[in-house]
Amino acid sequence: MNLTLRDFKLRYRNSVLGFFWSLLNPLLMMVIFSIVFSFLFREGVSDYPVFVLPPILLWRFFSVSTMYSLDTITGNYQLVTKIYFPRWLLVLSSGLANLLGSSLEFVACFPLLIIFGMKLNYSLLSVPLIIIEMFILILGLSLALSSLNLFYRDFRQIWEIALQAGFYFSPIFYSPSIIPSNISFEYSLNPLTQAVESIRDAMYYGVFPSVENFAFVLLAGGVALLIGVFFFRRAERKFGDAV
């Protein structure tokens, strides 16, 4: 618990301004995408800001958390080399700090979304559930990433590219209906696609996300967690030597 608070404090450097900066990023992205797609391309999506902002926030939760997770073991070498405690606590606390940060971002953007035309629906109640199942997925990946980065210090570059690709391969700033139907199955295998569809259902279309979408992300999270735990337990024996 104290580790989580520490990570949160370090992330925002103890300042309200720090949180403000982290909020500015998704808002700017929203503005840019709104300009490009509703004015330049005339996509024909109404209330485009409401269409694009929730997926951006969700994507940021995913990308920022996993990027931070790369450093959870290497960045805490002072602790790891000096005292023994369950190492996964470091990954968990970093994840929880990001969960807290992202939840606050959602809350802070809420009034803005209403101004831009988001309707108050019961479907909004499913948003916390979507965030939590994303958290499970993130935790699984974080366990794997944090141990991989310890042994291969250039893993950061690879993950950065993967994230960039993931951003375009997920329907964040466009509607999945533009995907040609012959590859739509392969496209839907991306758990981020399904999570983005869920959050858009809940916050833009005002309907509860489909059970299939929700279950698929949960399943992906479970698989990621299994793989992550497996990786982490194998790597943990060598943490003290490799850091």
């Binding site: 520490r6 002072q78 790891v80 080399t81 000096k82 005292i83």
Partner: peptide, 8 residues
């Protein structure tokens, strides 16, 4: 161990 204890 060594100097200090995992302090940040």
């Amino acid at each position: 161990l060594e100097l200090g204890l995992g302090f940040h």
